[in-house]
């Protein structure tokens, strides 16, 4: 399953990354090297194997539904690149 340059550009767009001109070729080659390497997993028969996430399965971490103070609004906005009247400011969408 070799990636084409077009697919690399498509993936970049999905990830909201804009590639520099020379990077398309470089990333296509490097990503294909890595994908060729991970292809070795296909040697293994994993039918019936349950995918693993946590070493000790933890289910439903419940807690009491108590009202607590959250992060202060000003503190939450302090790192924003743009803020106005208690809100985040972004470039126009439409």
């Amino acid at each position: 399953m070799a990636l084409t340059k077009e697919e690399v550009l498509h993936v970049a767009q999905l990830a909201r990354l804009a590639l520099e001109p020379g990077e398309v070729e470089l990333f296509t080659r490097q990503l294909n090297d890595i994908l060729a390497y991970v292809e070795k997993l296909q040697e293994l028969d994993t039918s019936g194997v349950t995918p693993m996430a946590h070493v000790i399965p933890v289910f439903n971490a419940f807690r009491e539904d108590e009202v607590k103070t959250g992060l202060d609004r000003d503190a939450a906005l302090d790192n924003a690149p743009g803020r106005e009247e208690g809100s985040f400011v972004v470039p126009r969408i439409i």
Binding site: E7, V11, A15, L17, E23, Q30, L31, V90
Partner: peptide, 27 residues
């Protein structure tokens, strides 16, 4: 616009290895 801002932010903000891993993971 918003989409261009996202692209510029992430392309200029992340280094090559981070972008490579994001791409691989997205794929």
């Amino acid at each position: 616009n918003l989409l261009e801002m996202y692209g510029a932010t992430r392309t200029q903000g992340f280094g090559a290895e981070v972008r490579r891993r994001i791409m691989l993971g997205t794929y």
